[in-house]
């Protein structure tokens, strides 16, 4: 199973360093969610893991080999990426979009192969998009569109899938739909999933492994039960909260405490 890890990672934009000496190994075959306040470096970490951003110091390794020693297609056959806001060209169909996922598997001159066709069919099937394959992306709902993008990343057939805030801009039912789909993929294909998530409670419910970041460092990591605590929320988000077991999943659930709207016994 593919191992993706970062050692003494330092990275940023221009002269603004965001990650300062970060060590991280992605648990293989599991779902990892990275959480943290805005500008804590969670997207920067994901961009380094995907080789979108060159580290200032330290390095990212895939199976013990430095990431920058992989060819572009070679890396794209092992590591899939779904950016936060990819662009769908006007008038492109779901099937067209998903078939882009086969690009790293095709040679410069090779044509569309039966294996490509099967991979696209599997990806459409797995994401429940088979019936919508000939639709224009523009004609889909937000959740369907996100499923189409995930299908594209699936057609790539990589061992690892990195997703940058896959549920942002989606309403709650579509958020649940997308996260359920990611769990299906992880369970059925064994795909290692790393995603940046905003919603702590959804992260705790869907991830096997939770990583909380603060100021370019990993502040806590481990099982959701170990990581999502009142102390962590206070440290990472500067927010007082109540953490109780989620009655539907048994995972920890965080309820923020504000200055208003609280019952008297909680406020005291």
């Amino acid at each position: 199973m593919t191992i993706l890890s970062a050692a003494a990672l330092q990275a940023g934009y221009g002269d603004r360093t965001i990650l300062r000496g970060l060590d991280f190994t992605v648990p293989p075959g599991r779902i990892t969610a990275i959480v943290g306040a805005n500008a804590c470096g969670k997207s920067t970490l994901l961009r380094c893991l995907a080789r979108l951003l060159r580290p200032e110091a330290g390095e990212v390794q895939l199976d013990g080999r430095a990431l920058n020693r992989f060819g572009a297609r070679d890396l794209a056959r092992r590591l899939g990426l779904l950016p936060q806001s990819p662009i769908a060209p006007d008038g492109i169909t779901v099937a067209d979009l998903v078939s882009h996922g086969r690009h790293p598997h095709q040679g410069l001159l090779s044509r569309w192969s039966p294996e490509d066709d099967r991979a696209v069919a599997r990806a459409l099937e797995a994401t429940g998009m088979a019936d919508l394959a000939e639709r224009d992306i523009d004609a889909l709902s937000g959740g369907q569109r996100q499923r189409a993008w995930i299908a594209m990343a699936l057609a790539q057939e990589t061992g690892i899938l990195l997703l940058d805030e896959p549920t942002t801009f989606l309403d709650i039912s579509h958020q649940v739909e997308v996260l359920d789909l990611l769990v299906d993929l992880n369970r059925s294909r064994g795909t290692t999933i790393v995603m940046v998530l905003h919603d702590l409670n959804l992260a705790a419910r869907y991830a096997d492994h939770l990583v909380a970041m603060l100021d370019g460092r990993i502040s806590a990591s481990g099982s959701p039960e170990a990581v999502l605590t009142e102390a962590m929320v206070e440290e990472v988000f500067g927010l007082k909260s109540l953490v109780i077991p989620d009655p539907t999943s048994g995972k920890p659930m965080m309820l923020p405490l504000g200055r208003h709207g609280m019952r008297r016994e909680v406020a005291e």
Binding site: A50, R51, L52, A72, R73, D74, L75, A76, R77, L79, G80, L81, L82, P83, S85, P86, I87, A88, P89, L97, H100, G101, H103, P104, A153, Q156
Partner: peptide
């Protein structure tokens, strides 16, 4: 690939 955005294109091996 570039039509999908630079990041998606890079992720697909461009």
């Amino acid at each position: 690939l570039l039509a999908l955005g630079d990041e998606a294109a890079a992720g697909l091996g461009a």
